[in-house]
Design a protein around this nucleic acid. Sequence first.
DNA 1: CGTTTCCTTGAGTTATCTCAACCCAGGTGG
DNA 2: CCACCTGGGTTGAGATAACTCAAGGAAACG
Lengths: 266, 266
Amino acid sequence: MPTAVSLTKTQDADPRFDIMPATFQALPTLLALGLTPQDMLRINAARSTFCTLEAGESLYYQGDDCRNIYLLLDGWAFRHQILEDGRRQILDFAVPGVVFGLPGSGTMSHSLETLTSCTFTVFTRERLFDLMRDIPTLGFRLLEIMADAEARAFEHLTSVGRRTAKERVAHLLLELVMRAHGQTPVLRQGTMVLPLMLPHIADALGLTSETVCRALSLMRKERIVILRGQKLEILDLKRLAAAAGVDLSTELDQATGRRGDLRLAS
Amino acid sequence: MPTAVSLTKTQDADPRFDIMPATFQALPTLLALGLTPQDMLRINAARSTFCTLEAGESLYYQGDDCRNIYLLLDGWAFRHQILEDGRRQILDFAVPGVVFGLPGSGTMSHSLETLTSCTFTVFTRERLFDLMRDIPTLGFRLLEIMADAEARAFEHLTSVGRRTAKERVAHLLLELVMRAHGQTPVLRQGTMVLPLMLPHIADALGLTSETVCRALSLMRKERIVILRGQKLEILDLKRLAAAAGVDLSTELDQATGRRGDLRLAS
DNA sequence: CGTTTCCTTGAGTTATCTCAACCCAGGTGG
DNA sequence: CCACCTGGGTTGAGATAACTCAAGGAAACG
């Protein structure tokens, strides 16, 4: 299993990073909560390496000995595991602001593949450690991000283990809507772009694409959501939540509470 | 949903913590890799609060507004989510050394329930932040622990999403053996204590206890493992791995590589 | 030694899978 | 500009892994 891509090295760190190019705006959104502007500058100065992938390429493969930490700046990607006989499980979908490839132990347990063209920032393990030493808040923030990722993984696990096919599909769509809402606000009234194909949804949910298709046609008939091509249209968010078995008001409270939480006490 | 237990506060931090009581030995094993003895002392000094639970009690519930970080010192526990209609998904099993309740956002997405009597150390969010500021290595170590937990969750997800009942059971048993091996070495030749009942295994794997029972009887007939009561007897680790769909040699390489990894570069 | 709790096994049911045909939209080339 | 082709999506019918319900059985406990 070869390493996927060569990394592009930019010119040396430029102290004038406060004039940030467009691709750098993703960093503040998710990572930066609780950080001071000076901290931001230092982090940006450390981001001397990044890389870009086309849709369908892999940043790393299951079994690679990955020593880097990645921050997805732009695009959609997903992480997945593949069994010997080809069965695939999609572990999660990555949207801008997601951090991964963190200093776990041993070799990578999964691969990362892009859904659209993507831009990543790459920190080496050592550079991250230095940054965390200089900026304690960063370490704490990363811990929060990891904890959120864990919560998402758990929610996902509950879906796959204990929900019906229709509930799973509804739940995944709801999650993606909520997450996209935090990022790029949902496009005009309830429509957003999902760069997924049915097999992606199926492999994320432990189903076949036929079953996903049937669940989607059902919800289309019930006028809950319409997913055609890459366009997801939400007709009735409330009933989508109901179909997912989620109490939407609680969920929203949590999402807003979440924002509040992200501000660091100190 | 009430908070589960009252916390017991010990006498103020004692600088002579290098003479550690028995319950404190769990900290070094998993958390302490890469930390200096002085760091250990400071962390121990900050552990002024702990709590003890009997088997079957809960440390916190789904929906609680939990602001603490817990370290399991002794005993077995599990984290789980419950749906409205009572369906339960067990998210993971906790053994001594596991860290959880980390500063995610919003309210707790799951509950923690003990399987045996347990002892936990409790850090408040603020205290942990202070510690991380003082001991940068601690933050990095916690990040590693979280990354390992994520890898376990992903492996678990793949099991539930894409493996057959027998594969799932074999895989879980294998995971528990491997983890216990790192901790309390497996009891005499291939026998260890598992404080689980069949419904726990079933709810962890997205199965019913009957299906788990059938998978276990099958493996018993095949002379792979015997699980009776709380005693797990491994008759043929190689074939257990094969049944789990895992290449054991790779897995072992990884585990040993892992130990190496845990030592921090700096 | 009875009671309780959990494990085991069987037989019928069902959600999801498998396999296969068909459809539709978009792109390409004549 | 239209015919064809291709890569998904859709729908149906039969197969199957796992579920449900139900009846024992064994071990643990008082």
